[in-house]
Design a protein around this nucleic acid. Structure first.
Lengths: 340, 340
DNA sequence: TTAATTTTGCTTGACGTACCTCAACTCTTA
DNA sequence: TAAGAGTTGAGGTACGTCAAGCAAAATTAA
């Protein structure tokens, strides 16, 4: 296989290398008819510009910044360590990845950090958004400055962010419900929902999806008022224990946010047997799955999400195409037997 | 961020650029003590060799060959079209991907094709293995010639293939069983297994995993003698209809191979209602999932598998590390609500 | 000590694209 | 017909590593 070079294209189109280059990089100063001739030649010869040579010649480093919550939840801990791994991995492709930790759930902290960084924020930003107008404004400002923005895990759909990297949380809630619907054998009973934070869009959406399916398809199941766990295991455990004590006919449980350890501790001591679906794949949930204390865990792969965000930011800065197939973040269902 | 170049390392280590290059590429002619000095300097400066410049200077094209079955099953059709897509996508990274179609389930055809290609087979091969000594021998010969080999979807574990790209099929079978176990509410009944080919290792393994769980955990369920569907929808439909007619107390069904369309057509006309788990995500299974005719589909992502095989072959030829996280092929569980 | 061998330095030319300058050319349009 | 604007060509430098050959230095063996 002899590679087709830009020079070959130039020869075929009867123009100079400089002109091919101008066409290739959308620089002005080329007549429309010539552009077409060059493009035809590229198609004819099946020209693929050499990524390696291009980035080298462009003498350019990509600089991307991740803005992630500093909280101590297992999930964001995982995200942060994945960013560290990715930072090392992408260095050899001239991609510099920085991570800035911001206090969780605090829109002002996010905006302050963006302001502080200024131009140092680089070519693109991946941020875990929170529901707030000033965050949306900050995103729009970044875009206006030409900085690319993707939201990660938690979206800000009405902002001008270019992509959302994460799962469809409404669908995740629906999955939880439709699994529980199939798992629960009892003709009727109560279903408990352990929520995280009401200000996190992803939690709210999951709950929405869950309720949709429950209401439409499970008239025999009664969804109890949700438990606000604040993503703290101890809080979850205490509140859940109280609810379980009050309701003898619990047949299912969905835990959609953090603090899953609290869920596991609470149900372990409960004499009732019911179906359980949670989120987060940690040492605790793994053990609980294997022991049969919980039935399924719904997860998004942080490693994939981080890589995906970087690839997408790079494609956005290069103006190249995104491989949709590769960037699809899955709602992963783990049962005892397909644990990774 | 100013990049650390090999020249910087040379300066820091007090050697010449040529020596750094020799260390970098494991060429001989460098004293052990000097090697260590250079490596220390690289660590100190956090040197990352520039992938782009390296592949460019190496003036090297990677050439990989996929050997895949030519059969008309939905799954391998998908694999083949993913290879086509990947071929285009990887061209810009100087990776030439070729696809050779071989008659399915025919070890001699595979070996004949390998012989025919000779050195044209390139730097690495990804093949869908079949259970046979001559195939294992062919793989070992390729390895002896320095050609890298990964098996795809169906493994040949006792050969000298370097990696297997695919799912743990025993685990997939176990997942199917443990889902059915949870889905089936009846206190007892029959379970039907629709198999594909007995010579495909992945099919055999899935069945094994399924039986393991059924036997150990579901004494109330009776697994009927399996139906050999030969991956042909018509055959599957006819045989399954016969079995369903003979057994009024069927409560669950697992279809572990091709011909899923036949399964769907057969159960559609059956008055009984039972839980169904299948493989393959096609237009048919999607519709059936949405309609509630089947409950879950277990899938491996062909797009991911093809990309993964190429990345792994490239890492093997470069002698670089493999990102295990990225190459983990998942056993994906799809229910109605997390369809992609 | 010398001779043989190994290790290191130095230099130079790829590799394919990006990006720049300057000169020359081709059209308009007045 | 000439000024002006828009196009194109030619050629150069840069990017960071690889590869190769030869010269020089350092080390080891005799």
């Amino acid at each position: 296989m002899t590679r087709v070079t830009a020079q070959d294209v130039a020869d075929a189109a009867g123009v100079s290398l400089a002109t091919v280059d101008r066409v290739l990089n959308n620089r002005k100063g080329v007549r429309e008819s010539t552009v077409e001739r060059v493009i035809r030649a590229m198609e004819l010869l099946n020209f693929e510009r050499d990524q390696a040579a291009a980035t080298l010649a462009r003498r350019r480093d990509y600089r991307f910044t991740f803005l992630v919550p500093s909280g101590e939840t297992a999930f964001f801990g995982g995200i942060r360590s994945e960013i560290e791994i990715a930072r090392k991995h992408f260095a050899k492709d001239r991609i510099e990845v920085n991570m800035i930790k911001v206090p969780p759930l605090d829109p002002h902290a996010i905006v302050a950090e963006i302001d502080r960084l200024g131009a140092d924020i680089g070519d693109g930003v991946a941020m875990v958004a929170v529901e707030s107008q000033i965050v949306r404004d900050a995103i729009n400002d970044l875009r206006a400055r030409g900085v690319h923005v993707v939201t990660l895990i938690s979206d800000a759909p009405t902002s001008s962010r270019e992509r959302f990297v994460g799962i469809d949380n409404v669908a995740a809630g629906r999955v939880a419900a439709s699994l529980l619907k199939r798992f629960i054998h009892a003709p009727e009973g109560d279903v408990v929902v352990v929520a995280g934070s009401g200000t996190l869009r992803d939690h709210v959406e999951r709950r929405m999806g869950f309720e949709q399916v429950m209401r439409a398809e499970c008239p025999h199941l009664n969804v109890l008022p949700w438990i606000e766990g604040e993503e703290l295991a101890d809080v979850v455990e205490a509140k859940l224990k109280a609810v379980l004590a009050d309701h003898p006919n619990v047949v299912g449980l969905y835990s959609l946010g953090g603090g899953t350890r609290g869920v596991i501790d609470a149900i372990k001591t409960d004499p009732k047997k019911f179906s359980v679906v949670t989120t987060e794949l940690s040492a605790h949930t793994r053990t609980a799955l294997i022991r049969g204390e919980i039935d399924a865990v719904l997860v998004q792969d942080p490693s994939h999400e981080v890589r995906s965000a970087i690839r997408i930011l790079k494609a956005l800065t290069d103006g190249t195409q995104i491989n949709e197939n590769q960037e699809r973040i899955r709602i992963e269902i783990f049962v005892r037997d397909n644990l990774p």
